[in-house]
Design a protein around this nucleic acid. Structure first.
Lengths: 343, 343
DNA sequence: CAAATAAATTTACGCGCGTAAATTTAAAAT
DNA sequence: ATTTTAAATTTACGCGCGTAAATTTATTTG
């Protein structure tokens, strides 16, 4: 009848008739207590619905079941989706995801790591900001906490890296574009905030040279993460000036491409692969929205389901082995060409 | 030279020469100690870079500087943007934002609140899932923690609500569409997951009737939050069947509209307001991407900067007053018509 | 300069839980 | 039934910090 209020494990110990240390063991690992006691605990649990205070747990346990997830920017649907995928794997493996976004700010990124330290995570999955990242401070974090990087690599930091093979994927799309029409110019930001951008630029240049074409970089102004806006604004400039050396634009990422497509549409360019089109536009990443652009965006997929799965499982492996990786593994997943309407 | 490792406030007390209770006071409120001691602490702080363990603080303080932010779905750019805005206000006010997404899952929503309880937040800003929300459990949370709802209202829950006035905004766009062309049909999901949907439907019906037109609901199948996909798939069906009673479609939200626009484009419909167009499409929300669709999406803005500011400041007011609102305030912000290319 | 006031220090306990050691109890093996 | 072994209980302390009470020290006031 009168349910006494359960405020802590002590209270729950008295109402369940199980000692607190045993309860503590149970909550850490239900399999670590005898099945008969486990049953008693679980029936009591149903009646009283008690949850131990995870933060008090974190404070004392040498190692928790927390797994930190740090991404550069949660407002970017690409990272939001990636994070969601990873969270699912983390939960499925019996861990507790703690998601933090860095708002594109290196200081915030370090602060996120500092905060994670306090909850003593079993491990961390991190997509670093990239060049902007305060690498040495991340490195010192990684010495204390097993960390797997994804999306953007930083040399020698973390136990492993899982990401897409930008060299392969950029070569792939450059090759495709050259086979099917005029060789592409490369549309990117002069000072890109997002990771991977430099690698893509240099790969573009090399790929073009190898195919015997002259690389053409369109490096536009703009700061920050509002990439569609930058793509639109600068795309409008570039297209309306009308001195494009080619009818094909390869954008450094899909978000820029979305802006460029919008600019092209408004300027009356017909974008696509049919004979009567003025312009081809391609992107990179297979952003969640790229299948709804007009025309749909031809791009290279980063298989983020696989990146999520692989990076998560790599981390779980490290955690289970209870030792650090003897050797840093770098996994580069090949991108797949996603042929849609725009190029 | 040899910096001793500062592990806790005790350590910092010895190196700084300030007693731990005084340090504790300082970290809670720097202004609460004499300026001379404050200076001493701060110089020591520069040398040793000590941060108190926020979770240990949370455990003991009656009230913390944490403010919980709960949104239905972090992968939705609308909520991601909203959350980012609110976070900024929270930081500016000297609080600490703790952002949690519910993944569209009512259970997760409650779990988020349970987890927030543990960090004893000074207050919570919450955009509930809406109809799906387990209202009574949210209500009991709100009894313990000052909570301001935003975006989606639940009757009598929380100290205040700040959101957009769906009646006003839907009337506005219906009126606009009727003035400028054929009266719109209303495109929505049969069983929408997102909040506000029912209110928009009923308002559409009423607005149409008041203007002397027959309301036409296009209620499509689909579950979950993948709204662009649903808009695209079902939009394709509706448009290709060709039995639309009107050339104007008002979508319940921008994400559906983005899908519909994409479908229209692929089926060769010319969308827009010019004379030679086959179709007009309008949305609702002024989603971050709606200015990059082709054509750009005519919609009604939810002024989320203002919603973010107003809801945050309402909460700060409550917290400062240290008492509960005598009366639940409901703020409905008028939407503004955003006339773009699609309708 | 003494008295009054304000602020810092010392001491001590609490938060909710982890965890180790010693002890008791229950289950499994002989 | 007795010994062996495993698991639960009791007891006690620790994590990093908040906080209250008593005391000491510093500052302000008259």
């Amino acid at each position: 009848m009168s349910q006494p209020k359960i405020r802590n494990m002590e209270d729950f110990a008295s109402v369940s008739g199980i000692s607190r240390p045993t309860l503590s063991k149970y909550f850490n690992d239900p399999a670590s207590v005898r099945s008969s006691t486990r049953a008693r605990i679980e029936t009591a649990l149903e009646r009283f619905d008690f949850h131990p205070n995870i933060y008090a747990m974190n404070q004392n346990r040498r190692l928790t079941k927390n797994i930190g997830i740090v991404v550069p920017n949660l407002s970017d649907p690409f990272f939001a989706e990636m994070a969601r995928n990873i969270e699912n794997w983390v939960i499925k493996a019996g861990f507790r995801p703690v998601l933090l976004g860095s708002h594109g700010d290196p200081e915030q990124e370090i602060e996120n790591l500092d905060n994670l330290r306090l909850i003593k995570p079993a491990g961390v999955l991190m997509a670093p900001l990239g060049r902007m990242s305060l690498a040495s401070r991340i490195a010192s974090f990684c010495e204390d906490v097993p960390t797997v990087l994804f999306d953007s690599n930083i040399d020698d930091i973390g136990e492993a890296f899982v990401g897409s093979n930008n060299v392969q994927s950029v070569c792939l799309i450059v090759d495709y574009l050259c086979r099917t029409g005029q060789p592409p110019a490369f549309f990117e930001m002069k000072t890109p905030a997002n990771p991977n951008a430099f690698k893509r630029r240099t790969t573009y240049v090399r790929a073009m040279e190898e195919l015997g074409h002259e690389p053409r970089l369109i490096q536009v102004d703009g700061e920050g993460w509002n990439l569609e806006e930058i793509g639109f604004r600068e795309g409008t400039k570039v297209l309306s000036e009308g001195k494009l050396p080619t009818d094909t634009i390869l954008c450094s990422n899909d978000r820029l491409a979305i802006g460029v497509l919008s600019a092209a549409y408004q300027l009356g360019f017909k974008v696509g692969i049919e004979g009567d089109c003025d312009l081809r536009v391609a992107g990179h990443d297979d952003h969640p929205f790229s299948r709804y652009t007009c025309p749909t965006l031809t791009t290279v997929s980063q298989d983020y389901e696989v990146i999520a799965e692989k990076s998560a499982k790599t981390l779980f492996g490290l955690i289970e082995s209870e030792k650090r990786a003897e050797q840093r593994t770098v996994t580069m997943l090949d991108g797949k060409l996603v042929m849609r309407g725009s190029a």
